[in-house]
Amino acid sequence: MMVLHYWRALWGVIGRELLRFVHQRERFISALVRPLVWLFVFAAGFRAALGIAISPPYETYILYEVYITPGLIGMIQLFNGMQSSLSMVYDREMGSMRILMVCPLPRWFLLLSKLIAGTSVSILQAYVFLGIAWLYEIQAPLEGYLYVLPALILSGLMLGALGLLLSSFIKQLENFAGVMNFVIFPMFFMSTALYPLWKIQESSELLHALAQYNPFSQAVELIRFALYGQLNEYSLIYTSVAFMLFMLFAIIGYNPSKGMMVRKGRG
């Protein structure tokens, strides 16, 4: 019976997240417009400026738009993870988080359900983006669209767990702007989403090291390789470990006796 309870609760949380997503059409559109602007405007503009040499998983010279596409999928998931974290802070301020927290299920499971729900939404967005990119003639091998699914699940979970972890630290909604400035932008720009590691190394060793150890870079590389039917084992392990660590700290953060819930005071 307990398994059935968990199953129903998980679908309840996912269903709610999808319903909310459908109701908030502007959220869906803005989630798509952002990477599309990067693809159609930024990447097109830099096509000539940035030459991309042949490097795995690519077997030939590629256009900058092709290089940037996995990075933009990562961007969708990064923003989605932060959006979920924002909605957690909002739910906590508004009180609806309490409804989730007082239901008779372990807190780790409730957080994991939230995370899976958020990741499902981000995967939906990523595939719509890939579909539009396909029409723009940025096309990966057909099987790549299947192989990328597990990569999207893992990267979505990792970035969502980071969002959860941050939401356990953010006391008020207003502090969220700080997260944008200090987490999303540095993570995105100091990564392999926009330029390959060797290119970064040419300009700065420090930036190269930061980009290399940035979990977002590894998530992007995991997606990039999967999209071309290859497995980047280092990225897989790095992203998995990062996911487990973020999740563990998020669970501690939401633990009523150990984490931020206590330090936050009156809820």
Partner: peptide, 25 residues
């Protein structure tokens, strides 16, 4: 709770179904 905790964008039924699912009904 003192603060309203319903999801404003969802219908009454959707809110209650969500709660039922959380309780394994």
């Amino acid at each position: 709770f003192q603060q309203p905790t319903l999801d404003m964008d969802l219908t009454v039924m959707q809110n209650l179904r969500y709660h039922a699912a959380l309780h394994g009904i």
